[in-house]
């Protein structure tokens, strides 16, 4: 018998995690993203916005490991600083999604009836609006910028988490111990806080990782279109947009930011998949 641990995700332990390849690769890649973003706050090989026209479009070498762009800026430094933007957009967009989505979903499951029905219709409606359309409308109203992107992706994340929370919470509400809690005179709010939320953390965490990856992709796409992050703030998507002008002369400029995006998204997706397998081992056979 192992001692029962309160509020941990079932089956999640360090030993089992280490034996899971996709979880390990995902965790390492995600950690690398976070370390790169934090490191770039205090140190980059060159200033990411340091314009140096005489040394423009240099090939990778000893001084500039990944070369320089059309303004002579160091590509490695820009890629490192770009991680800040991706991380920030991901964290904020997922925070908006989890904050509002869990609130709405848990309320719908706790209250039921007309509230629940109204919420589900609302999420249906939001789903019909792809994030990119929301971002375009927001950009038309408040202008392009990182905050536009955060709002657009955040709004899109709300129904994702609302549906997930409602479904998972309803399953918990049907359990015997909830009946016992209600018989003991606990209110709906107290039951939601004490019993429902701790039991649905696992799927929300898993979905959070996946939505984080989606947010990074969406930020890159919107910044590529010029609707997102604006210069001088570095952004991987923006770098790809600028690189497209130099496809014939310096094609490598279009490679590095893309690799950074792909590795970050791959890491988060693998981490999410691994966490899901750990949280629900029954799924593992099928995947």
């Amino acid at each position: 018998m192992t001692p029962a641990r309160a509020s941990t995700i079932p089956g999640m332990s360090l030993g089992r995690g280490l034996r899971h390849p996709s979880l390990c690769i995902g965790a390492v890649l995600t950690l690398a993203l976070v370390v790169m973003a934090l490191l770039s706050l205090v140190w980059t090989p060159w200033p990411p916005d340091g314009i140096d026209i005489p040394h423009r479009l240099l090939s990778p070498g000893a001084h500039h490991w990944l070369g320089t762009d059309q303004f002579g800026r160091d590509v490695l430094s820009m890629v490192m600083a770009g991680a800040q933007t991706s991380l920030m957009v991901g964290v904020l967009a997922v925070a908006i999604g989890i904050g509002l989505g869990v609130l709405l979903g848990a309320s719908a499951a706790a209250l039921g009836g007309i509230c629940e029905e109204a919420l589900m219709r609302l999420t249906d409606f939001t789903f019909a609006f792809p994030a990119i359309l929301t971002a375009i409308m927001l950009a038309a109203i408040i202008g392009p910028g990182t905050l536009t992107v955060v709002f657009a992706i955040g709004i899109f994340n709300v129904p994702v988490f609302a549906r997930l929370t409602r479904g998972a919470a309803k399953a918990v509400w049907a359990r015997d111990y909830i009946l016992a809690a209600r018989a003991a005179g606990k209110g709906r709010f107290a039951i939601t806080i004490e019993h429902v939320l701790p039991n649905i953390m696992a799927p929300i965490l898993v979905q959070g990782t996946i939505q984080f990856a989606t947010a990074i992709l969406a930020e890159a796409a919107l910044s590529y279109l010029g609707l997102g992050t604006m210069p001088p703030q570095p952004s991987w998507g923006r770098m790809l947009f600028e690189a497209q002008t130099f496809l014939f002369t310096a094609p490598r400029l279009a490679v590095f930011p893309g690799v950074a995006i792909a590795l970050a998204v791959l890491g988060l997706n693998l981490l999410g998949d691994g966490l899901r397998d750990l949280a629900d081992p029954r799924l593992r056979r099928r995947r």
């Binding site: 796409a221 998507g237 496809l247 792909a262 998204v265 997706n269």
Partner: peptide, 18 residues
């Protein structure tokens, strides 16, 4: 499929053009 999920479509487009 993991690779396909991670590569942004507009980056793939740029690579295909290259």
């Amino acid at each position: 499929t993991q690779l396909g999920l991670a590569i942004p479509n507009f980056w793939l487009a740029i690579l295909l053009v290259l």
